[in-house]
Design a protein around this nucleic acid. Structure first.
Lengths: 344, 344
DNA sequence: CTGAAAGCGCTTACAG
DNA sequence: CTGAAAGCGCTTACAG
C-alpha cells in the first residue's frame, strides 16, 4: 500500500501558483479566472484555462474555504427517528435528488443526523460555520426550532414548518391540497360516489392538506363526505386503518389513501375481506415508488416527484447562499399516474 | 433577515488565539490541547478547556484542514442506477448507519453520486484530496475500478469487489454463505425436505454466496438439491421467479428467498395460486425491514444488521485514515428472526 | 512541557 | 484589466 501511514493524503496536485506561472500571469489573475470574475481579458482566460487543463489543476478546497470564508458544504438535517425515517423510500428519494444535484454542482451534501437527546448540538454545529446552508427534512414540529436558525443561516425546508413566519422561511414542497384533490377527483371521474380516505398523521401539515384536498374534491362534486381514518404512513398503519374503515361502515366504493405504503397494507386487508380492487373498491394514492408499482393490483397514484423535490431543495439553497432573491415558496409539480387499482 | 447577502456566513465565533489568551498560554499550546497531544500538563489542559467552554470555542474546519492537510470528509460513493438503488431500503439503511456514526465522530459523511457517463470524474475527484477516505457501495463490478483508487486513498468496500487482491482491500460485509445457510437450516429444522430457492442476481457475489449457503445446508442435511430461480432483489423479480418455480415443478415445501423484497413479491404469487404459507410452503428470507414485517404472513428472516454495517464501514475508514492497522475483512454479525412464514 | 515562527493554498481589497 | 501583499485560522517542526 502506498497510503501514507501518517494519515494524511498526499495526492500530487499542482498549485495555483504553478498554473499562474505556466500561463504567465499572477496567481491573483489565475484565481479570478477560476472564480469567473468578469474583469479579465478573453485572452487571459484562455491562457489560464489552457494551463489548468495541461497540469490537471484542481483547487484546494480547504484553502479556498478559509480564504473565502465559505465551506461549499450543505447539510441535510435528518431527525434521528431511525427506523421510521429510513424505512420510508420518500426520504431516501429526497436525499438522492439532492445528492444528484450536489454532484453536478460545486457543493458537498453532508448528512447530519440530529440526535434526539441533544438537538441543540446539531443547531450549534450548523451555526458555527461548518456549512453554508442547511436542508431540513422533518414532518414534525421539531423543525420549528429551525426557524430561528434560518435567521442566521440559509435554510430550506422540505416541509412547511408550523407557526407564523414571513418571507424569512423558504420552503420547497408539493401542493398537498392539490395532490389530495387530484387523487380524489380521479375516483370521481371513474364514477365512484362514496369515497373514503385513509389520511397521513394529522399532526403533520402534509397529512392535513391531503385530507383537505380529498374533502374539497368531494364537496366540489356535490357528493356526501366519506369516512376517514388516520394512518401513520406505514403498511401496517394502512392495514389497521382499512380494517377500521370496513368495520365501521364499509359502504364505500373507493378510497383515497394518502401514501403508497399505507395503500399496500390496505390492499392486503381488502384482499383478506374478499373485496376486489377495483371492482368493489377503487384505490388511488400518493407516491410513485416500489409500493405503488409492485402491489397487486398496481396502484393509481399522484406522482409527487420526490427526487425532483430533493434536487430543487439543493438548487434553492445554492441560490440562497449566493445571495440571490428566492421566492419563499417553491412548488414541485404533481402528476396523476393511472394504473389497475382504478381501471381494469 | 440577517443573512449576509454577500453569501458568506458570518457566525460569530471566537478564535483559537482568544482562547489561548484567556487561558494564558500560546495558541500552539491551545492547539495541542484541542488535538489531544500527550505532552501537555494536566493543569494546562484544564485551563484551556475551561477557556474553551467559557467562550464556546469551535475550531474553524477549513483552517484546520488547510494546516493539517486533512479534510475530515469521507465520501459514500453511490452508483447512479438511480431508481434501483434507492428503492431498496438496504442502501438507505447502510447510509443511515454510516451517517449516525459520522455524526458522533469528527467526520462529515458526504454523498457522492457517481455519474454513469463519467465515472472517471468521480475517481479523479476522490483522488484530488477532497476527502480523506471513501466508502464504496456497489453490487456490481464497476467497483473493481476502485481497487486502484485504494492504492492511494483509504477505501472501505461494503461488498467484496471482484478479482484478485491482497490485504490492500478492506471489506465490511456479512458472511453471505452463512446467511444463506442459516435461513435454509431453519427450514430444515422445521421439518421441510424439498427446499427451493430464489437467488439474488448471480452476477453479484452476495447472490452467489447466499445460494451457496442454501446448497451447503441442504447437502449437509443429506437432502436432495432443490429447484432454483434467479431474481433481481425487487418484488416483481421475486414474483416472476416464484411463478417460474411453480410452473417448472412445484413440488417444494419450502423456499429460501435471498431478499425480503423478492419474498414479498413471491408471497403474492403463492397467494394467487392458492398456496398457504407456511402450511403448504414455508418461506425464509434475508433482511429485517418493512418488507419482512409488513407482509402477510410476516417473514422469518436472517437479520444482516444493515445499519450496523454502515456504522462499521464508517468506523473502519476512520481507523484507516488514522493510520491504524485494520484487518482486511470485517464481518457483520447475523441473526435469525423467526416469524409466521415458517411457524404458525 | 511550551512558545515563536513559518506555512498550509487560496481570495480579495487596494493600487495602478 | 492585472499584480503585490495581506490575511483567512489553524498546525507543526524547531528550539529551548
Amino acid at each position: 500500500m502506498t497510503i501514507d501511514t501518517s494519515g494524511r493524503n498526499v495526492p500530487w496536485s499542482p498549485t495555483l501558483e504553478e498554473v499562474a506561472a505556466l500561463a504567465g500571469v499572477s496567481s491573483s489573475t489565475a484565481s479570478r479566472v477560476i472564480n469567473g470574475s468578469p474583469r479579465v481579458t478573453e485572452e487571459t482566460i484562455a491562457r489560464v484555462n489552457a494551463a489548468i487543463a495541461k497540469v490537471g489543476y484542481v483547487p484546494n478546497r480547504a484553502a479556498r474555504n478559509l480564504a473565502s470564508r465559505r465551506t461549499q458544504n450543505v447539510a441535510m438535517v435528518i431527525p434521528e427517528q431511525t427506523a421510521e425515517f429510513f424505512a420510508d423510500p420518500y426520504f431516501a428519494e429526497v436525499i438522492q435528488g439532492a445528492a444528484m444535484h450536489a454532484s453536478s454542482s460545486d457543493y458537498f451534501l453532508s448528512l447530519l443526523i440530529e440526535s434526539e437527546h441533544e438537538p441543540h448540538r446539531t443547531r450549534q454545529f450548523l451555526r458555527r460555520g461548518n456549512v453554508d446552508g442547511a436542508l431540513v427534512l422533518s414532518h414534525h414540529s421539531a423543525s420549528s426550532s429551525y426557524r430561528d436558525l434560518a435567521r442566521t443561516l440559509p435554510v430550506v425546508f422540505g416541509v412547511r414548518p408550523p407557526g407564523e413566519y414571513g418571507d424569512a422561511v423558504h420552503v420547497v414542497d408539493v401542493d398537498n391540497v392539490a395532490a389530495g384533490a387530484l387523487g380524489t377527483q380521479h375516483l370521481i371521474d371513474r364514477g365512484r360516489r362514496r369515497i373514503a380516505t385513509i389520511t397521513g398523521p394529522l399532526s403533520t401539515s402534509a397529512g392535513r392538506d391531503r385530507m383537505q384536498g380529498w374533502s374539497d374534491a368531494i364537496a366540489a362534486a356535490g357528493l356526501a363526505t366519506g369516512a376517514q381514518e388516520e394512518g401513520d404512513y406505514t403498511p401496517s398503519g394502512g392495514a389497521a386503518a382499512a380494517r377500521r374503515l370496513l368495520d365501521a361502515d364499509g359502504s364505500f366504493d373507493a378510497v383515497f389513501i394518502a401514501s403508497a405504503q399505507m395503500a399496500s397494507g390496505a390492499l392486503t386487508v381488502f384482499n383478506e375481506r374478499g373485496l376486489r380492487v377495483p371492482v368493489d373498491v377503487a384505490v388511488s394514492t400518493v407516491d410513485n415508488n416500489v409500493f405503488s408499482t409492485s402491489s397487486t393490483p398496481r396502484l393509481t397514484t399522484v406522482d409527487v416527484h420526490t427526487s425532483e423535490k430533493g434536487a430543487t431543495m439543493m438548487a434553492t439553497i445554492i441560490r440562497l447562499i449566493s445571495g440571490e432573491q428566492v421566492p419563499a415558496e417553491t412548488r414541485v409539480p404533481i402528476d396523476l399516474i393511472v394504473r389497475e387499482s382504478t381501471v381494469l
